[in-house]
Simulated scan of single mutants.
Amino acid sequence: MDTNISMLSTLFLALLFSLHSTDAAPEWGYKGDSVVAEDWATVHANCGGESQSPINIDTYYAKEMEFDAWKFTNYDVLVDNETSIMNNGHTIQVNPGTYTAGSTTISGGGLPSVYSFLQLHFHWAETNDAGSEHTRNGNAYPVEMHLVHWDSGNYAIPPLAVTSAKGLAVLGVWFEVGEENPAFDSMLDAISETNVMYKTPNLGSYVFPESALFSLGDLLPADTTKFYRYDGSLTTPNCYESVVWTVFSDPIQMSEEQIEKFRATFQNEPEPNPIPENYTAPEELPIGLNYRPVQDLGDRTVYKGFATLSAPESTVPSTTAGATSRHFDTYTVFLLSIVHYIFWLSEDMYKFPYSP
């Protein structure tokens, strides 16, 4: 058997195993009848660990540290035309197409490896005095965005990285109420103008049209040289302690009207179309809030980081539709296609373990 095909088969089986290797557990959530955040450890033991996230960042005790320059590869390039947005019942999540996932990476900034972009999602609450998962000096922001990356420098596929120390790198961005932010228009329009405001049936997704594509770099603060750094966990079950956290110091602005679009989302699926006879519509359940309370820092150190400013690096054309990856060989691109097909369609993988 060809060596590459054998490797592909092995990795594919490893992926399948990761999808089904966990025992069934009660549905977790943040309020209502689900297992709420304060009780997650009763059904997901990892959530009771000693290096959990999020945390309160006490700037007085944060240790100053200078890091090497960030390297944001293809963060200035439009995401590909397979990029999609969905409501998984817990959050609004954006999933990259295979090409973007295979070519968009972060490194430097004190990270121990090269990390590939996996997904981004948001946390919020019903009012502006809460919503962010991380707080600063006890103060919360109304929204926090997480851009999740996996260690593609050391692991073949995301499921192998997610349970490993420093296997994930998450960029956290705080939002404050201010001016309208056009960088998020295509996401927010998708929420309000499509059924993404409801849990996406069968965990499908809405693919962005060509006219609504965006670059990840436009979603970050203007100054990425200042940030907080610590080692922690996913902030949803199974709470694996595998995350190198970066929370940027400078919040970005979003208007009150834009933030309200997150609050107008629901845990339940939309009514079927067409509506069958004798159909009884379920009660609409707003997501409402989806942040985990801060966890004990313990003996961990939070660093107040300073990184040298560096220009974004592009290795692909600015128009990516129909392109083939220069970063990976043919077999890896094929593998990633299979990974993403199963990964994005599996409900288990949305609940566990990819939503820090």
Rank of each mutant, 00 (worst) to 15 (best):
K71S: 15
T135A: 07
E64F: 14
H121I: 00
N137T: 10
T127H: 12
N88D: 15
V77H: 03
N88F: 04
D76H: 14
T98R: 14
T73G: 06
G89R: 04
W70E: 06
T127L: 12
S103H: 13
A140Y: 04
L78M: 08
T98P: 10
S113C: 04
S116A: 13
T98S: 13
L111C: 05
D80N: 05
N81A: 07
T135W: 04
I92V: 07
N137C: 12
S132L: 08
A140T: 00
L78H: 13
E64R: 15
M86I: 09
M65Y: 13
Y61K: 14
W124A: 04
G110V: 01
A62G: 08
F117L: 08
S113E: 02
L118K: 10
A62D: 05
S116I: 07
W124Y: 15
G102F: 00
E133A: 01
F122H: 13
H90W: 12
N128M: 05
S132E: 04
T91N: 07
E66F: 08
S84A: 15
I85G: 00
N128P: 08
T127W: 11
T73F: 07
A69D: 01
S84C: 11
L118R: 06
Y61N: 15
I85A: 01
N128L: 11
G97W: 02
F72T: 06
G97R: 04
F122N: 09
P112V: 00
N81W: 05
I106F: 10
G109T: 02
P142G: 01
N95Q: 11
V94F: 02
Y99T: 08
